[in-house]
């Protein structure tokens, strides 16, 4: 099997998996019914994307692998999501901040992947981008509402952005895997993604009356399997059934 492609699919699928998981924790706890429903829609979209990536990955892997084996039966260091998406739902400003900082990356990433030489990845990107355009619209609108809402909401939104900012750089750190995939014409060119990202974030922050954090320190490691403490707890939930009741059909 093509191990690099397999690994790249994990890299693409793990972000929506873990972000979808975080959003699904909020179902039933949103600030209004309307918002609750909207966040769940995003979560469902993301899980849908995960299933496409992992069904493809499972097929590559052969040996009767399923999407669930890929999603549930890896060890901590085998998950490749970025640190950003595993950050907790501290409050609604973090939820929105995390979503926007990811959507602003996800959208140009998918634009690139639509042109992937790999037909399946390209097809998944074509389908997903429609969903992600909406996610981006939703999250950027809310960044503006919170950033330019009340004094209190502005404060909370700014704090969330400050706290999440150190995780942004990792989105664009090109790992050897991403470099190889880019060179084969399968993967995205992160430097181009970053260009769009910076402009987008700058624009929305201005409209939202938010300061772009100026600190330089960053946190990374997720793409290489070195995570924050958060991931262990997420996996404890995510994998619970598969681990406690192995080899059963659900």
């Amino acid at each position: 099997m093509n191990d690099q492609l397999y690994q790249y699919l994990l890299l693409l699928g793990d972000n929506p998996l873990i972000l979808g998981h975080r959003l699904s924790e909020l179902c039933g706890h949103g600030p209004s019914l309307e918002t609750d429903i909207a966040l769940t829609n995003i979560s469902l979209d993301l899980f849908g994307q995960v299933r496409h990536y992992f069904q493809y990955a499972a097929k590559l892997n052969g040996e009767n692998q399923t999407e669930d084996d890929v999603a549930f039966l890896r060890y901590e260091h085998q998950y490749k999501n970025t640190l950003l998406v595993e950050q907790p739902n501290t409050d609604f400003a973090y939820v929105i901040g995390r979503q926007f900082l990811f959507d602003a990356y996800h959208l140009p990433l998918l634009e690139q992947l639509m042109a992937s030489k790999d037909k399946q990845i390209s097809a998944i990107a074509h389908k997903s981008i429609k969903e992600v355009k909406y996610h981006h619209r939703f999250s950027s609108e809310w960044v503006k509402r919170l950033g330019d809402g009340t004094e209190a909401s502005h404060q909370k939104m700014q704090t969330a952005i400050e706290d999440l900012w150190p995780f942004v750089a990792e989105l664009f750190e090109e790992t050897p895997l991403e470099q190889a995939m880019k060179e084969e014409g399968i993967g995205a060119d992160l430097s181009q993604v970053k260009e769009k990202y910076d402009a987008d974030v700058q624009n929305i922050f201005e409209l939202a009356q938010l300061q772009r954090p100026d600190h330089q320190y960053t946190q990374s490691g997720g793409k290489k399997g070195v995570h924050s403490e958060q991931l262990g707890y997420i996996l404890a939930d995510l994998q619970y059934m598969q681990r406690a009741y192995p080899n059963m059909t659900w």
């Binding site: 179902c27 949103g30 669930d68 009741y245």
Partner: peptide, 27 residues
Amino acid sequence: GNWITRAPSLRRKVALLAKIQDEAGHG
């Protein structure tokens, strides 16, 4: 909602999530 994060498969997870979301809609 208690079991969304622990659903045993992706198929079950999305079905459960969609169902619970419907309940919000119905409310």
